[in-house]
Amino acid sequence: MINMSTRLTSIAAAAAIVLGGTLSISTAVAVDAKVLEEGKTLAFKRKDGNCLACHVIEGGEAAGNIGPPLMMMKIRYPDKAVLRAQIWDSSVRNAETAMPLFGKYGILSESDLDKVVEYIHTL
């Protein structure tokens, strides 16, 4: 049921965006194991997401602690879009953030950022 309602919300969101004339879908990938695996790789790699520099993640080694551990993400971010926005530009919610602006400053491409969001949201 949770899945179903998420899907419905997504459909609504997609429709709204299309009707608003600002379609923003880059690639039509399914959230399958491959996407999650790619997201994880991007999240762990130093040159890409490097989330482990500051966040503890289950299964990640040598993690830092500048930011909070990435866990219970579905509870903390019921809306995936909010999580995405936070990773895209964390300074919107906190001007004094120590987190890089992964989307706004192009550290991750939009499609890579999508994959990272998918993975982080499973934590």
């Binding site: 997504s10 969101a13 997609a14 879908i25 399914a30 959230v31 995405r84 895209w88 939009e110």
Partner: peptide, 16 residues
């Protein structure tokens, strides 16, 4: 859009 959404892809954020 609908296909992508059904596939579970997240869609969002005006910043995108």
């Amino acid at each position: 859009g609908a296909i992508v959404a059904i596939a579970g892809q997240s869609v969002f954020a005006a910043e995108k």
